[in-house]
Design a binder for these strands. Structure first.
Lengths: 214, 214
DNA sequence: TTTTGTATTGAATAATCATTCAATATGGGT
DNA sequence: ACCCATATTGAATGATTATTCAATACAAAA
C-alpha cells in the first residue's frame, strides 16, 4: 500500500540532488545524529523521520555512508554560505567584518548544541573516512586563508605588529573550535554571550584602540 | 583448548581493576579506537589485540559499554597525573609552570594523533551518554580552576590587568582543544612545535616583559 | 594424586541493521 | 481508458556483533 502521495519530480532539475525527498532525508539525518549520535543513527530512523520507507532512503542515496557524506556536505555548505555573505558585504570595514564573523560563529543557527554535536560526530570519524577528512580539510583551508587576509587588512590599519595575521587567524579559529566543543560539555557556562565576549576581549587586547571590540 | 597460560591473580589486590588482563584490555581498547574509530570497535577485535578470548573480555567488564567507560577513565587519569605532576613541582615559579603545562599539552604522549582521535571519539558521544559527560565535565572543571589560580599568581607578579585570570585560562583551554582537533585534520601543519609556538606567542603578547615565553 | 574453586575459552544465541528487490502505486501521454 | 516509465514500498536476506554459558584448563590445597 502506498500511503504517501507521489512526489512530482521537476524535470528542470536534472540533478537528483535537488528533489524534495533528497533534502528531507538530509534534514532527518542531521536531526537524528543530533538526537541520538552517529553510532545510533540507523537508516530506519532517518527514513521514519523523513516519512519515507526504509528501502527508499537506501535506494535514493545508494548507501548509508553516502547519505552521511551528503549530510556533512550540506552542513559544510550552510556554514560556508553564512561566512561568504559576510565577506561579500561591501558595507563592512575589516573591524565590522571580524565582528560579524564572531557573531556568526556563535549565532544560534551555527553554534547550537545540536549542530555542534553533529559536527563533532563527523570530526571523530575524520581519521577513518578519507571522504570526511577531505571536506573538513578543505573547509579549514578556506577559513584560514580568508581570515588571514582579513586580519592583514586589519593590521594595515593599526599599529599592531607583534602578532602576525597568520597567528591571529589560527588563534581565532582554534578558539572557536575549542569553545564549540565546550558548548557540548556545558552549554550554560559556555553561553553564546560568554564565548563572543571572550573572543572580542582577545581582539580588544590586540587592537587596544578599537572601541568596537566591546 | 586453552592456549594461554593462566594468569595468576594477586590476592593482595582486592580490586579487580588492577589485574594484568584488565589493563591489557583497556590498552587494547584505546589502540583499537585509535586505529578504527569508536563505531568500528568490536569486542572481538579488542579481545584479539589483548590476546584473550572474546567471552572473557565481556565477562571481565560486564559489558562493552563498561569497557569503553573504563578506557575513558584511564585516559582521563593519565592526563590528570601528567598535569598534577607539574602543579606539585615546587621548583617551578608561575611562568615555569605555565610553560610546562603548554609543553605537556603538546607532548607526544598527550597530543598524539591517535590519542586525540580517541578523545574526540568520546567527546562526540558526550551528549548521548551521561557517564561520558560526567567524566569530561569533571575534568574540565579541574583544569579550569587550577589554571585560573595559576594565572592569578602570574598576574600578581606583572602589570597585566586588562585580561582577567578567568579569561586567560578559558582562552588557553579553548585554544588547546581547538588545536588538538586541528591536529586530527592536518598533523603536519599543526605540528607540536607550531601549536606550542602559537600559544606561547599568545602569552608573550599578554606578558610582554616575560622573556621565557619565546 | 585427587579435589576444588577460579580463570578462561569458544561456540551458540539473539538482536540489530544495511541492503536488495519484487511488487505496487502514480500520473502523464496517447 | 489504457499504457508506460518512474517513484516508492516493505518484507526478506545476510552480515555483523554483543552477550551468554556450558565446557575446559589450571594452580593450589589436601
Amino acid at each position: 500500500m502506498n500511503i504517501n502521495p507521489k512526489k512530482i519530480s521537476n524535470p528542470q532539475l536534472k540533478e537528483q540532488e535537488f528533489s524534495i525527498n533528497h533534502q528531507k532525508l538530509i534534514d532527518a539525518t542531521i536531526e537524528t545524529i543530533a538526537k541520538r549520535g552517529l553510532a545510533d543513527t540507523t537508516i530506519a530512523q532517518v527514513a521514519k523521520k523523513a516519512m519515507v520507507s526504509q528501502g527508499y532512503a537506501n535506494f535514493r542515496f545508494k548507501s548509508k555512508e553516502n547519505l552521511l557524506l551528503s549530510s556533512l556536505k550540506f552542513l559544510s555548505d550552510e556554514y560556508k554560505n553564512s561566512w561568504q555573505r559576510i565577506f561579500e558585504d561591501n558595507n563592512l570595514d575589516p573591524v565590522g567584518r571580524v565582528i560579524k564573523i564572531i557573531e556568526n560563529d556563535f549565532s544560534s543557527k551555527i553554534a547550537s548544541r545540536n549542530k555542534i554535536a553533529v559536527w563533532v560526530s563527523f570530526y571523530s570519524e575524520v581519521k577513518f573516512r578519507p571522504s570526511y577528512l577531505t571536506i573538513c580539510q578543505k573547509q579549514d583551508e578556506i577559513y584560514s586563508s580568508q581570515m588571514e587576509k582579513l586580519i592583514k587588512e586589519l593590521n594595515f590599519l593599526t599599529d599592531q605588529t607583534f602578532l602576525t595575521p597568520r597567528e591571529i587567524s589560527e588563534t581565532y579559529l582554534s578558539m572557536v573550535d575549542g569553545l564549540w566543543q565546550r558548548i557540548l560539555f556545558d552549554p550554560k557556562m559556555y553561553s553564546h554571550v560568554f564565548c563572543k565576549g571572550l573572543i572580542k576581549k582577545y581582539f580588544k587586547n590586540i587592537y587596544t584602540d578599537e572601541k568596537r571590540f566591546v
